[in-house]
Nucleic acid binder design. Structure first.
Lengths: 174, 174
DNA sequence: GTTAGTGCAAACCTTTTGCAGCTCT
DNA sequence: AGAGCTGCAAAAGGTTTGCACTAAC
């Protein structure tokens, strides 16, 4: 089990298994992935209302430095926070839909090939690799096309005076 | 030329080519890559002392939204800032040495394969992809090994009383 | 009993926003 | 002329730090 192997690794290095860390490790383990510091903090607070946000940051930093979790950005779709996942699974890429935010995971041989080629090409020792891909998922592609079309109609409908070709306004989140 | 194609693309969309933007575009273009907002700002200030940091952020954001530059994290080796590079070159991965900070670029077929496989596997439309790899470069691997060895000697030399196996202290930047 | 770890408050760094005034086209 | 852009100041968001106290081993 993942949790146990992480705990073991920590214990072995003389890192104390405090109550707070137990809570956080358990959450990271069972929630699976894509938790950022704030969400993790909110979840942890339910189990221990006194647990501090700073402890969450410190724990995550320690786990990352120990190579026990990986840090992701998920293309900053939501904001500039970081996401964490335990480092057990096979290497995988994260595929983020820039319209609905859905995150998929891609495991596949190109990833291993990539790693190997980089190692042999540069004589580089790869410790961590992160591949993030942004675009539109199958579902959003059609919705997106419709949105663009609607926008075009609106813009043309506005029938502006001179200005030969109307510079289209860009849609914007938030 | 890159600069011209960017300028053209902007003009075409009715984006104004202000003095500030000309300066910033020129810097981004000729400095090549791996500039973050602050460095870009510092460089720009030399050409126009009144140019504001906020303008740099706004310009970068606009260029990114227009798909004219790519945003990188470079594994947050230095800090949490973002780096930018023009989007002309073929897709490539960034390989960052976690000891000396050197950044290499890797172009190679696994990247194209990866993209294609993701597109066909999920029916996903890939707009941008970012692969960052961290580890030790050929040069630092040997230095690193020596460092670890020295540290081990030091720790053993300290001849601590009980505590059978000494939990090694981790080296730290900053 | 030690020493690592925690909580709290406050700082820090990067980036964004509101608004008045300036400037491209 | 007028929308788009800039500068300024101030805020926001995410994360880190200093320090005294607490708890794991």
């Amino acid at each position: 089990m993942v949790l146990d192997s992480i705990k073991g690794s920590l214990k072995e290095r003389g890192v104390r298994l405090t109550r707070q860390r137990q809570i956080l490790l358990e959450l990271i383990d069972k929630t699976g992935e894509h938790l950022d510091a704030e969400s993790l903090f909110q979840l942890a607070k339910e189990k221990d209302p006194k647990l501090n946000r700073v402890t969450v940051y410190r724990t995550l930093k320690m786990l990352k430095a120990s190579g026990l979790v990986d840090e992701l950005d998920l293309m900053h779709y939501v904001g500039d926070q970081h996401y964490y996942e335990t480092r057990l699974k096979q290497e995988h890429a994260h595929v983020i839909c820039l319209r609905c935010g859905k995150v998929e995971e891609f495991f596949g041989e190109p990833l291993q090939r990539l790693r190997k080629q980089i190692e042999s090409h540069f004589g580089f020792q790869v410790l961590l690799a992160r591949t993030e891909v942004g675009g539109y998922c199958a579902h959003c592609q059609t919705l997106r096309a419709r949105e663009v079309e609607e926008l075009r109609m609106l813009t043309l409908g506005a029938a502006r005076p001179a200005a030969a070709r109307a510079p289209r306004k860009r849609a914007r989140r938030s």
